Simulated assay, not measured.
Amino acid sequence: MNVRIAYVSSILIAVSFSALAAPSQIEVKARTESDFQIQQLLIAQRHAPINSQFRLQEHIQNLSPDSPLRVLSTPARQRFVASLRFNEAGITSLGYEDIVNELTYRDAHRLLSLFGAERTLEKLPQLRVETLDDEKIQIFARPPMEDDHIGYACTGRSTCSASSQQICMTGC
Protein backbone atom coordinates (compact mmCIF):
# COMPACT_ATOMS: atom_id res chain seq x y z
CA MET A 1 0.00 0.00 0.00
CA ASN A 2 2.81 2.45 0.83
CA VAL A 3 4.47 1.72 -2.49
CA ARG A 4 1.24 2.55 -4.34
CA ILE A 5 0.84 5.85 -2.44
CA ALA A 6 4.46 6.77 -3.10
CA TYR A 7 4.03 5.95 -6.80
CA VAL A 8 0.83 8.01 -7.10
CA SER A 9 2.43 10.88 -5.16
CA SER A 10 5.45 10.92 -7.46
CA ILE A 11 3.19 11.00 -10.51
CA LEU A 12 1.15 13.89 -9.06
CA ILE A 13 4.32 15.80 -8.21
CA ALA A 14 5.73 15.24 -11.71
CA VAL A 15 2.47 16.35 -13.35
CA SER A 16 2.21 19.45 -11.17
CA PHE A 17 5.84 20.44 -11.91
CA SER A 18 5.38 19.92 -15.66
CA ALA A 19 2.16 21.97 -15.56
CA LEU A 20 4.00 24.78 -13.77
CA ALA A 21 7.03 24.62 -16.02
CA ALA A 22 5.25 24.25 -19.35
CA PRO A 23 3.79 27.45 -20.82
CA SER A 24 0.28 27.34 -22.20
CA GLN A 25 -0.25 26.76 -25.91
CA ILE A 26 -1.30 30.40 -26.27
CA GLU A 27 1.94 31.60 -24.65
CA VAL A 28 4.03 29.27 -26.80
CA LYS A 29 2.22 30.38 -29.96
CA ALA A 30 2.62 34.09 -29.11
CA ARG A 31 6.30 33.60 -28.26
CA THR A 32 6.82 31.58 -31.44
CA GLU A 33 5.08 34.22 -33.62
CA SER A 34 7.08 37.00 -32.00
CA ASP A 35 10.34 35.05 -32.43
CA PHE A 36 9.34 34.34 -36.04
CA GLN A 37 8.75 38.06 -36.71
CA ILE A 38 12.05 39.01 -35.14
CA GLN A 39 13.87 36.40 -37.22
CA GLN A 40 12.17 37.69 -40.39
CA LEU A 41 13.27 41.24 -39.60
CA LEU A 42 16.82 40.17 -38.85
CA ILE A 43 16.96 38.26 -42.13
CA ALA A 44 15.62 41.32 -43.99
CA GLN A 45 18.28 43.52 -42.35
CA ARG A 46 21.07 41.02 -43.02
CA HIS A 47 20.15 40.60 -46.70
CA ALA A 48 19.26 44.22 -47.44
CA PRO A 49 21.14 45.91 -50.29
CA ILE A 50 23.01 48.00 -47.70
CA ASN A 51 23.72 45.87 -44.62
CA SER A 52 27.18 47.03 -43.56
CA GLN A 53 29.41 50.08 -43.47
CA PHE A 54 31.36 48.61 -46.39
CA ARG A 55 28.24 48.25 -48.57
CA LEU A 56 27.14 51.76 -47.59
CA GLN A 57 30.47 53.21 -48.75
CA GLU A 58 30.24 51.18 -51.97
CA HIS A 59 26.72 52.48 -52.60
CA ILE A 60 27.76 56.09 -51.96
CA GLN A 61 30.83 55.82 -54.23
CA ASN A 62 28.63 54.51 -57.05
CA LEU A 63 25.56 56.62 -56.24
CA SER A 64 23.22 56.18 -59.18
CA PRO A 65 20.74 58.89 -60.16
CA ASP A 66 17.84 56.67 -59.04
CA SER A 67 19.30 55.78 -55.62
CA PRO A 68 16.79 56.37 -52.82
CA LEU A 69 19.58 58.22 -50.98
CA ARG A 70 19.27 60.96 -53.60
CA VAL A 71 15.79 61.91 -52.38
CA LEU A 72 17.49 63.64 -49.44
CA SER A 73 19.20 66.99 -49.96
CA THR A 74 23.01 66.77 -49.87
CA PRO A 75 23.37 68.07 -46.29
CA ALA A 76 20.51 65.82 -45.09
CA ARG A 77 22.04 62.81 -46.88
CA GLN A 78 25.40 63.47 -45.22
CA ARG A 79 23.79 63.69 -41.76
CA PHE A 80 21.68 60.58 -42.40
CA VAL A 81 24.67 58.55 -43.61
CA ALA A 82 26.73 59.69 -40.60
CA SER A 83 23.94 58.48 -38.28
CA LEU A 84 23.89 54.90 -39.59
CA ARG A 85 25.28 52.08 -37.45
CA PHE A 86 25.72 48.43 -38.42
CA ASN A 87 26.71 45.11 -36.89
CA GLU A 88 26.63 41.53 -38.21
CA ALA A 89 22.80 41.66 -38.11
CA GLY A 90 22.75 44.66 -40.48
CA ILE A 91 21.56 48.13 -39.54
CA THR A 92 21.25 48.77 -35.82
CA SER A 93 20.39 52.48 -35.63
CA LEU A 94 19.63 55.43 -37.85
CA GLY A 95 18.81 59.10 -37.55
CA TYR A 96 15.33 60.04 -38.70
CA GLU A 97 15.12 63.84 -38.37
CA ASP A 98 15.99 64.53 -42.01
CA ILE A 99 13.67 61.76 -43.21
CA VAL A 100 10.76 63.37 -41.37
CA ASN A 101 11.70 66.89 -42.47
CA GLU A 102 12.23 66.14 -46.16
CA LEU A 103 10.44 62.97 -47.28
CA THR A 104 7.00 61.61 -48.01
CA TYR A 105 5.94 58.09 -46.98
CA ARG A 106 6.84 56.73 -50.42
CA ASP A 107 10.32 58.27 -50.45
CA ALA A 108 10.97 57.28 -46.83
CA HIS A 109 9.85 53.72 -47.62
CA ARG A 110 12.22 53.53 -50.59
CA LEU A 111 15.11 54.89 -48.53
CA LEU A 112 14.56 52.65 -45.50
CA SER A 113 14.10 49.59 -47.75
CA LEU A 114 17.75 49.93 -48.76
CA PHE A 115 18.58 48.89 -45.19
CA GLY A 116 15.75 46.42 -44.53
CA ALA A 117 14.33 49.01 -42.12
CA GLU A 118 11.05 50.03 -43.75
CA ARG A 119 9.13 48.76 -40.72
CA THR A 120 10.36 51.82 -38.79
CA LEU A 121 8.01 54.06 -40.81
CA GLU A 122 5.32 53.56 -38.17
CA LYS A 123 7.70 54.72 -35.43
CA LEU A 124 8.54 58.00 -37.17
CA PRO A 125 6.73 61.22 -36.38
CA GLN A 126 4.26 62.25 -39.06
CA LEU A 127 5.62 61.94 -42.60
CA ARG A 128 4.05 63.86 -45.47
CA VAL A 129 1.26 62.31 -47.51
CA GLU A 130 1.15 63.84 -50.99
CA THR A 131 0.07 61.01 -53.28
CA LEU A 132 -2.12 57.93 -53.29
CA ASP A 133 1.07 55.84 -52.96
CA ASP A 134 1.97 57.75 -49.79
CA GLU A 135 -1.48 57.09 -48.40
CA LYS A 136 -1.34 53.36 -49.21
CA ILE A 137 2.10 53.00 -47.66
CA GLN A 138 0.92 54.84 -44.55
CA ILE A 139 -2.15 52.61 -44.21
CA PHE A 140 -0.45 49.31 -44.98
CA ALA A 141 2.94 49.87 -43.38
CA ARG A 142 4.15 46.92 -41.34
CA PRO A 143 3.73 47.43 -37.62
CA PRO A 144 6.99 48.26 -35.87
CA MET A 145 8.74 45.80 -33.59
CA GLU A 146 8.70 46.39 -29.87
CA ASP A 147 12.49 46.02 -29.98
CA ASP A 148 12.81 49.11 -32.21
CA HIS A 149 13.27 52.05 -29.83
CA ILE A 150 12.70 55.62 -31.00
CA GLY A 151 14.82 58.18 -29.16
CA TYR A 152 17.68 55.70 -28.72
CA ALA A 153 20.78 54.70 -30.69
CA CYS A 154 22.62 51.39 -30.72
CA THR A 155 25.81 52.10 -28.80
CA GLY A 156 27.04 48.54 -28.32
CA ARG A 157 25.98 44.92 -28.51
CA SER A 158 22.39 44.78 -27.19
CA THR A 159 22.76 48.31 -25.79
CA CYS A 160 20.41 51.14 -26.74
CA SER A 161 21.29 54.51 -25.22
CA ALA A 162 19.20 57.68 -25.21
CA SER A 163 19.75 59.72 -28.35
CA SER A 164 17.14 62.06 -29.76
CA GLN A 165 16.16 61.71 -33.41
CA GLN A 166 17.53 58.12 -33.58
CA ILE A 167 16.00 54.65 -33.70
CA CYS A 168 17.76 51.73 -32.04
CA MET A 169 16.69 48.66 -33.97
CA THR A 170 16.12 44.97 -33.44
CA GLY A 171 19.47 43.25 -33.77
CA CYS A 172 21.43 45.90 -31.89
Rank of each mutant, 00 (worst) to 15 (best):
N62Y: 09
R70F: 00
Q61S: 11
S67K: 01
I60Q: 04
L63M: 07
I43D: 14
A6C: 07
V71N: 07
R31V: 02
A6S: 08
Q39T: 07
I38M: 13
S9Q: 05
L20F: 10
F17K: 05
I50S: 05
I11F: 07
R46A: 05
P68R: 08
Q25G: 15
H47V: 12
A14H: 05
N62K: 10
A19G: 03
S73M: 04
P49Q: 05
P65L: 03
V15L: 10
R31M: 06
R31N: 09
I60W: 02
I11N: 03
R4M: 02
V28Q: 07
Q53D: 12
S64P: 05
Q39H: 10
L56Q: 02
E33V: 12
Q45C: 04
Q53H: 13
F36E: 06
H47Q: 13
P65V: 06
L41V: 10
L56E: 06
F36Q: 11
V71K: 10
S24D: 00
Q25K: 15
Q61A: 15
D66R: 09
S10I: 08
I5T: 05
V28I: 09
E27A: 09
L42K: 02
F54K: 11
A19I: 13
N62T: 14
H47E: 09
M1P: 09
A22F: 15
L42A: 01
A21M: 14
I60T: 03
L63C: 01
R4K: 10
L42C: 00
L12E: 02
N62M: 12
A48R: 04
H59C: 00
S64G: 11
A22L: 14
I13P: 01
S73R: 06
P23M: 04
A21C: 10
V15P: 00
S9K: 07
A22W: 14
A48G: 03
A44P: 04
Q40K: 13
P49M: 01
A22M: 15
R70T: 12
E33Q: 14
P68S: 01
Q40G: 08
L12R: 09
E58Q: 14
R70H: 08
L56K: 04
S16M: 10
S34I: 15
P49F: 10
K29L: 12
Q25I: 15
L20I: 13
A19E: 04
F36N: 11
P65S: 11
S18M: 11
A6G: 05
L20P: 06
E27Q: 13
P23H: 06
S10Y: 06
P49K: 03
A30P: 04
